[in-house]
């Protein structure tokens, strides 16, 4: 089975202190990591090929540094990787991205295309399904289990309140993968070093034969206006002092507000 996985490099923000610089996230102090959902998708694809043969190809779109996300996937066991890297792609909305991906993927002969359910940075959860639309493929979202069979894949989809749904899709198909579908493996530094010499296919806008007006912000229907941190709410009070003093102050406030009987 030939599987394509779309992966994205995203900033890790869970514990970081974020700063917004001119309406955009300041990436200076942030580390770029593989989008969590995509990591599950890569692991799932690698497991399928480990169990029953085949190939895993990776595809990402981003700047030169984003090649890391492909190297990491190769170290996990993917067999080949392609990098859509061109300034002309910048500012694309999901629909435009889907068109770019569709052009790059067409004729690749993939039986199965996997993406994460969403990316952790923008969280639009639409590139995957739009790509299915562009390619005219059946798709299923939020997969928590995949059972590839002859000519079809059975997908267990996670629904609300612990319910799930099983759907069968004829291959080729596209599936967006939910987190928790597996336990992705650890990628060691040595593992990444080992794939350092593998060639990554570089794809630019010209190679796709897409006109400039079909790319980037110009072609996009959605335009990002600004990015903001949640405003500091009223009612927060910062206490200062040593530990004992902090405890006394906190207890006094609780007592005062009726929190302590």
């Amino acid at each position: 089975m030939k599987i394509l996985v779309l992966v994205k490099n995203v900033p890790e923000v869970a514990e970081a202190e974020l700063e917004i610089d001119q309406g955009a996230l300041d990436l200076e102090d942030l580390e770029m990591v593989v989008n969590e959902w995509d990591n599950y998708a890569v692991e799932e694809a690698v497991r399928i090929t480990e169990a029953s043969g085949g190939e895993v190809h990776l595809l990402t779109l981003g700047n030169e540094d984003d090649e890391d996300v492909l190297r990491r996937g190769l170290a996990m066991g993917a067999h080949a990787a392609s990098h859509l890297c061109d300034e002309a792609f910048e500012g694309s909305d999901p629909a435009t991205l889907a068109r770019i991906f569709a052009t790059a993927v067409k004729g690749g002969g993939y039986d199965l295309i996997l993406t994460g359910v969403q990316s952790s940075d923008l969280g639009q959860a639409s590139t995957g399904v739009l790509l299915a639309q562009e390619l005219g493929l059946p798709h299923a979202t939020m997969a928590i289990a995949l059972e590839p069979g002859a000519g079809e894949v059975v997908v267990t989809r996670e629904l609300e309140n612990n319910t799930s749904e099983k759907v069968a899709l004829p291959l080729p198909a596209l599936v967006t993968v939910q987190s928790g579908i597996n336990q992705p493996r650890y990628v060691s530094i040595m593992g990444i070093r080992k794939v350092r010499k593998m060639t990554i296919e570089q794809i630019q806008a010209d190679d796709l034969g897409l006109a400039e007006e079909a790319l980037g912000a110009a072609a996009s229907m959605v335009d990002s206006q600004s990015l903001a941190l949640p405003p500091m709410g009223e009612g927060a009070q910062m206490l200062e002092g040593g530990l004992d003093s902090l405890c006394d102050q906190a207890a006094a406030i609780l007592r005062e507000k009726g929190g302590l009987a």
């Binding site: 996990m76 493996r185 650890y186 060691s188 593992g191």
Partner: peptide, 16 residues
């Protein structure tokens, strides 16, 4: 185990 990757406990993966 670290090289092989799949049997590293999640907490240690996170630490590494």
């Amino acid at each position: 185990l670290v090289e092989q990757g799949s049997a590293v406990p999640p907490q240690l993966m996170d630490t590494l």
